[in-house]
Design a protein around this nucleic acid. Structure first.
Length: 487
RNA sequence: GGUCUCUUGGCCGAGUGGUUAGGCACCGGUCUGCAAAACCGUCUACUCCAGUUCGAAUCUGGAAGAGACCUCCA
C-alpha cells in the first residue's frame, strides 16, 4: 500500500517517494525559545510527531530534524531591530543563552508530557553561525545578494527575473507585494522592499552578535533552516514541515536561498499544519486568549473550566486532520476527554476477554482501514473512528454479544498497541508506580462495600461509593462483579 | 487592498456525485437495590442563490460570512 501526502507546493496529494529509500529526511521548523510553550506549539509538535511515528512504523528509517531558534528573529514593535532573545535577556538581567536554555528545556518538557518523541537532531541556530555565513557567501557568489551598510540582503527581484520562482510555494505575486510592503526601519538599505536579510549588522546595544565578513551581527530570518537542513539532511531532502503561518515569507525564502546557494529547491514535499483557534478566534496575547501548555495542563487560565491532561490535548488534536483549523473550547475538550477515556477503558478491558472457538468479528479489516486512512495524508480522525469501532467490539465481547477466537484476540490487542499507542502516541496516564498500591486499597474498600451490600445496608454501601467517587474512583456494579475506574 | 483557505446536525469534527463517519451532549429501552458504566435504539446536517447531472452537501458560477498570510508568530 502506498502513502499519499498533501504537498503545499502542488496543492495536491502526491505519492510519497523518498529520495534514498528506506531513508527519509524530515525537517520541521521548531520553536523560538524566548517564551513558554503555548497551545500553538502543540499542533505542529504532535502533527509531525505522527508523521515521524508513522513513517517509522511502515519501515522507513527517518532522520527527523527540528531546530531550536535561539537567535536572529527580529522584533517589529518599538524595539525594532533588536533580537527577541536579547531583548528579554536585558529585561531580566540574564545571559541570552540562559534564557534560551531555560525556555528550550520548558518546551521539551511540555512536548514530553504530550508524548511527542524527541527528534533525531535538535540543532540550535546559534550553534550553526558558520554554516549560515557559508550560505550567505554562496548566495553572494551566485550574484543573488548584495552587501549594504554591513548587512547582506537577498535580491528578490533578480531571483524572480532569472528563475520565475519567487512565489511558487505561497502563490505570491511580487508586484502585489511591492504595493503592500510597509515602511520599516532599515528599509533604505534595501534595493527593493521585498528583499530580505541574510545577515544583519548588530546595533551597538545588541548583545547577541557574531563576527562575519560583513559586520558583527547575526543571521537573517530564514537562513538557519536552510543551513541546518542542508547540513543534517543534505541539500535536497524529502519533507519540510511547519505551521501554515510560516508559508510566507519563511518557507518561500528558504526555497529562494536553496535555489541560489545549491542550484535547486531544498525539498520534494512541503507539508504544513493548520492553526488552532480558540472559540473561533486566533490565539493572541492581545486577545486575552493566549494559553500556555502549562496553563492548559493545570487549568489555571481564566477561559478554562478545568485542567485538561496532556493526553486529552493530544487526543483532541488528533481528532482533527492536521490540515484543518481546529477550534478549542471547554465543550470540545471535555468531549475529547470522555472519548479518550472510553477508548482507554475498552483497551484495559481487553485482558478480561477469553478467546472462544467461534469468531464473529473482523479485526483485520479494521487494521486494514486504519492503514488506508493513514496512507491518505495521515488521516488520524478516521483512524480514531475505527478505534472506537474496536472499542465497541471489545465491550460487546465482554457482554457476550460477539465471539472472538485466539487469533482474533491477538489481532485486537495488536490493533490497540500499534494504532493507539505506537502510532497515535497515546499513553495510558493511569499507569504509574502507585498503581499496585491504589489497586489493592480500592479492592479492599470494594470488599467492605460488598459486605454492606450483602447485608442490604444501602446507606453504608452508597457512602463508600460516594467517598471513593470524591477521590476520583468510580464504582461500577454489574452481574459479574464490581469494577472501578480512576478519573 | 492582494494571496490562500474555510462555511457540515446542540458542540467538536471526517468524508463522498446516489449507501450510518466518529466522539461528546440529548431522548427512549435493557441491566442495576439505586446510580454509573456498558449494550440496543431514536433524533438533529451539509451558509445562501443559480447552473451541470437521472441524481449534488459533494462539480461549476455567483453572493454572504469566517479565518490565515502579506509584519515576529505554530
Amino acid at each position: 500500500m502506498e502513502l499519499y501526502v498533501y504537498n503545499t507546493l502542488t496543492r495536491k496529494k502526491e505519492l510519497f517517494k523518498p529520495i534514498n529509500p528506506p531513508n527519509v529526511g524530515l525537517y520541521v521548523c521548531g520553536p523560538t525559545v524566548y517564551g513558554d510553550a503555548h497551545l500553538g506549539h502543540a499542533r505542529p509538535g504532535i502533527s509531525f510527531d505522527i508523521m515521524f511515528r508513522y513513517l517509522t512504523f511502515i519501515g522507513y528509517k527517518v532522520r527527523y530534524v527540528r531546530n531550536i531558534t535561539d537567535v536572529g528573529h527580529l522584533e517589529n514593535d518599538s524595539d525594532q531591530g533588536e533580537d527577541k532573545i536579547a531583548k528579554k535577556a536585558r529585561l531580566e538581567q540574564l545571559e541570552p543563552m540562559e534564557i534560551a536554555q531555560y525556555y528550550t528545556k520548558r518546551y521539551l518538557d511540555a512536548m514530553d508530557l504530550l508524548n511527542v518523541l524527541r527528534p533525531s537532531i535538535q540543532p540550535s541556530a546559534s550553534g550553526h553561525i558558520m554554516e549560515q555565513i557559508e550560505i550567505v557567501e554562496k548566495i553572494l557568489e551566485a550574484g543573488y545578494a548584495y552587501v549594504s551598510e554591513g548587512s547582506v540582503y537577498f535580491d528578490v527581484l533578480k531571483y524572480q527575473n532569472d528563475t520565475n520562482k519567487y512565489g511558487i510555494l505561497s502563490n505570491r505575486v511580487i508586484e502585489d507585494m511591492l504595493q503592500t510592503t510597509r515602511e520599516l526601519e532599515g528599509q533604505h538599505e534595501k534595493r527593493n522592499p521585498a528583499d530580505f536579510a541574510l545577515w544583519k549588522k548588530a546595533q551597538p546595544e545588541h548583545i547577541m552578535r557574531w563576527k562575519s565578513p560583513w559586520s558583527d551581527g547575526f543571521p537573517g530570518w530564514h537562513l538557519e533552516c536552510t543551513a541546518m537542513s542542508a547540513k543534517y539532511l543534505g541539500e535536497k531532502f524529502d519533507i519540510h514541515g511547519g505551521g501554515l503561518d510560516l508559508l510566507f515569507p519563511h518557507h518561500e525564502s528558504e526555497i529562494a536561498q536553496s535555489v541560489c546557494a545549491f542550484g535547486h529547491e531544498p525539498t520534494n514535499y512541503w507539508i504544513h499544519n493548520n492553526m488552532i483557534t480558540i472559540a473561533g478566534q486566533k490565539m493572541g496575547k492581545s486577545l486575552g486568549n493566549f494559553i500556555t501548555l502549562e496553563q492548559l495542563f493545570n487549568g489555571t487560565h481564566k477561559i478554562l473550566n478545568k485542567a485538561y491532561s496532556p493526553m486529552t490535548i493530544r487526543f483532541f488534536i488528533l481528532q482533527a486532520h492536521y490540515r484543518s483549523t481546529l477550534d478549542f473550547s471547554n465543550e470540545a475538550l471535555l468531549a475529547a476527554e470522555k472519548g479518550l477515556k472510553r477508548l482507554l477503558e475498552a483497551q484495559r478491558n481487553l485482558k478480561k476477554i477469553s478467546p472462544s472457538k467461534e469468531n464473529t468479528v473482523n479485526i483485520n479489516e479494521i487494521n486494514q482501514k486504519c492503514l488506508e486512512a493513514m496512507n491518505d495524508d495521515f488521516n488520524t480522525p478516521i483512524v480514531i473512528s475505527y478505534l472506537f469501532e474496536a472499542a465497541t467490539i471489545i465491550n460487546r465481547l465482554i457482554e457476550g454479544q460477539e465471539k472472538i477466537d485466539e487469533k482474533g484476540l491477538e489481532a485486537l490487542n495488536k490493533l490497540f498497541d500499534n494504532w493507539l499507542f505506537e502510532i497515535l502516541g497515546i499513553k495510558d496516564e493511569l499507569s504509574s508506580n502507585m498503581m499496585p498500591t491504589i489497586e489493592g486499597l480500592v479492592k479492599m474498600i470494594i470488599e467492605l462495600r460488598q459486605d454492606a451490600r450483602a447485608n442490604k445496608d444501602w446507606a453504608k454501601s452508597d457512602e463508600l461509593r460516594d467517598k471513593l467517587a470524591s477521590l476520583g474512583v468510580k464504582i461500577k456494579d454489574s452481574k459479574d462483579g464490581v469494577s472501578w475506574t480512576l478519573d
